[in-house]
Amino acid sequence: TYYTVKSGDTLNKIAAQYGVSVANLRSWSGISGDLIFVGQKLIVKKG
C-alpha cells in the first residue's frame, strides 16, 4: 500500500494510523531520518 504524505503529517501519525512502527515505516520506504515531504509516497505494509 502506498500512502501519500499530506501537509501536517508526521511519521508518528502515519505509523499510528496504520498500526505499524515508525522503524518499519522508515525501512519499507527507505527513509533514514524523520524528514518527510508533502507529496512523498511511503510504502505501508499492514500487519
Rank of each mutant, 00 (worst) to 15 (best):
T1Y: 14
S29E: 03
S27V: 12
L35V: 14
D9A: 01
D34Q: 08
D34W: 09
L35M: 13
S7M: 14
S32N: 11
S32K: 12
I31K: 02
K6Q: 14
T10C: 06
I36G: 01
T4H: 08
S32F: 10
I36H: 01
Y3R: 01
G8F: 05
N24I: 11
N24A: 11
G33Q: 08
A15F: 02
K41P: 05
S32Y: 10
K13P: 00
G8D: 07
G39T: 03
A23E: 15
N12I: 15
G8C: 06
Y18G: 02
A16C: 12
W28H: 04
I14A: 00
D9I: 01
K13G: 13
L42R: 01
G39H: 04
Q17F: 12
A15P: 00
G33L: 08
D34P: 06
Y3K: 01
L35T: 14
W28I: 06
K45D: 11
I36D: 02
G8N: 06
S21P: 07
K45L: 12
I43R: 10
I14W: 01
G39K: 02
G47M: 12
I31Q: 04
W28R: 03
Y3M: 04
A15K: 00
N12D: 15
K41W: 07
G47I: 13
K13D: 12
F37S: 10
S32A: 11
Y3W: 04
V20Q: 06
K13W: 10
G19H: 10
G39Y: 03
K46P: 15
R26M: 13
T4P: 03
Q40G: 03
F37W: 11
I31R: 00
T10N: 08
L42I: 12
S7K: 13
N24D: 15
V44Y: 04
K13R: 10
S7T: 13
V20P: 01
S21Q: 06
G19L: 07
D9M: 02
Q17H: 11
L42P: 01
A15M: 02
V22E: 09
L25M: 06
S32H: 12
S7A: 15
T10R: 03
A15V: 02
R26D: 02
I14E: 00
S27F: 12
W28C: 04
Y18L: 14
A16E: 15
D9W: 01
G8R: 04
A16N: 11
Q17R: 13
Y2K: 07
N24L: 12
S29G: 08
L11P: 02
V44M: 06
I31P: 02
A15W: 02
R26I: 14
Y2G: 06
S27I: 13
T1L: 14
I31C: 05
V20H: 02
Q17W: 12
Y3G: 02
K6D: 05
V44A: 03
S7Q: 14
S32G: 09
K6R: 10
Q17P: 00
Q40W: 05
K41V: 15
S27M: 14
S32L: 11
V5F: 04
G30K: 09
Q17I: 13
Q40L: 07
I14R: 00
A15Y: 01
Y18D: 00
K46F: 15
N24F: 07
L42M: 07
V22I: 11
D34M: 08
S21M: 06
V44Q: 02
G30P: 04
L25P: 00
S32W: 09
Q17C: 12
K46S: 13
N12F: 13
Y3Q: 02
G47V: 13
L11S: 00
D9C: 03
D34S: 09
Y18C: 09
V5T: 04
L25Y: 00
K46M: 15
V22D: 04
Q17D: 11
K6Y: 04
I14L: 07
A16T: 10
K13T: 15
A16P: 02
L42Q: 00
L35R: 12
S32E: 15
V22S: 06
Y18H: 13
R26A: 09
L35Q: 14
S21I: 04
I14S: 00
I31L: 14
